[in-house]
Write a protein that binds this DNA or RNA. Sequence first.
RNA 1: GUAGUCGUAGCUCAGUUGGUUAGAGCAUCAGAUUGUGAUUCUGAGGGUCGGGGGUUCGAGCCCCCUCGAUUACCCCA
Length: 458
Amino acid sequence: MINKPSLPQGTRDFNAAVIRKRNFIFSTIKNIFEIYGFQPLETPAMENFETLMGKYGEEGDRLIFKILNNGLSNEKNIEKTKAGFEKLLEGKNSTDITERALKYDLTIPFARYVAMNHTKLTFPFKRYQIQPVWRADRPQKGRYREFTQCDADVVGSKSLYNETELANIYHQVFCELRITNYELRINSRKILAALAEACGGNEKMVDITVAIDKLDKIGIDKVKIELEERGLTTIQIETIEKFLNITGSNQQKILALHEMFGKNKLAAEGMQELAFVQNHAIPETNLVFDFTLARGLNYYTGVIFEVKAPAEIKMGSIGGGGRYDDLTGLFGVNDIPGVGISFGVDRIYDVMEELNLFPEDLQIGPKAIFFNMGQKEVDFAFNIMQNLRNHGIACEIILEEMKIAKQFSLAEKKNIAYAIIIGEKEIEQNYCQVKNLATGEQHVVVLENLVEFLGKMP
RNA sequence: GUAGUCGUAGCUCAGUUGGUUAGAGCAUCAGAUUGUGAUUCUGAGGGUCGGGGGUUCGAGCCCCCUCGAUUACCCCA
């Protein structure tokens, strides 16, 4: 009994039409990365499990796709396998069962790469990376188990100009994709740290940020309840509420924050960072200071970014990133600060599809197709076709005999621009009919001139 | 990991309180029509009703399990 074939949950096949649209996004992003001086890097689909473990928080670890070791049932491994499995059942991980995992993002593998190669790299080192990543998350709208990230990171530079450049990359990419009303939210972890300090200490930072990050979604009252559940006192919650009530323009927000934190050093630094980015960057309609922005990943230390899709689309963030002081420290190489951003191509695709933003001329097939007017004619046309191909003109020939009407609809489905008809008469008199399939216009072209003719036609 | 909704032809969907052999439109194929895409007409093929089990004289419909899709939560791009 043969089962119906299917795909693993959350994965997709991409047909030609989809790939052309995806490539449009990829090439737009890639070009701009290159213009800003970033160089490409690719890393393996899988990493050693230990490389990824513990880098994304508890929730993140749960979502890493683990790869089962080979040879588990091999006699000499069987004791180890059993012991390892016992550990798994206790909720622990065991390298006796899994030594490798699919990569979860591009940042940690990049940090691993930098740590491994830091003696050979020239700093500041700028790389971009466009590759699929995998997460064992439950799929839903805009969420896939296999999706592609486009990252750009600079390591070995503390300059805030990097943040500014990255903000401008976001702006330039989204303008080119015509997602003009995207929103780039930025915050600084230092401001959040200052808030945590004002609320009884750094160890409260995670609790506070996780809760206030949800303000948009669940509202102030529920945030307060969550803060209470997380052990914050009433006075501390009042402070946080005051913090969350800061609204207005970016300028007004800074003023209010200034008033609230006074001379607090961390807060002042954070505000300075945000102001710096704003002064060198993009329109305020796109750049929004958002002090509630936290971002889950623990390794961020300075400015953090998150890109929101246009408000009319219900979609999570379509990009994110931030500054990390010591990412490679996780791999034993200290003092390499960095900052990076990421584009979520799959979500950008969904947004563009919904807003109908893809250019119409992306769907191009071969330029010409030779109709089948009989076996002898095919034989003749084949050589003409090869000559076109040798001149770089994409074309094909219909090898099966079929009715003319069908040949036309076939050509149309393949998005082919021109039909070339060579029948008995044409062979005798050394010409062909070239029909523009979009307009219906038909030309008589002498065979010697066909390359030149098609070369000139759009 | 938790919860809701859904699953009938290639696609979009009908299908009565459970009742004969499960339907339509579109698409496909063949013919009218052996050198120009349309229209029209005629005909044809196509279904383990997601899968398994149960209740029943009888299940596409009711019950249980399971798989998949989708949406939301958690978290995230």
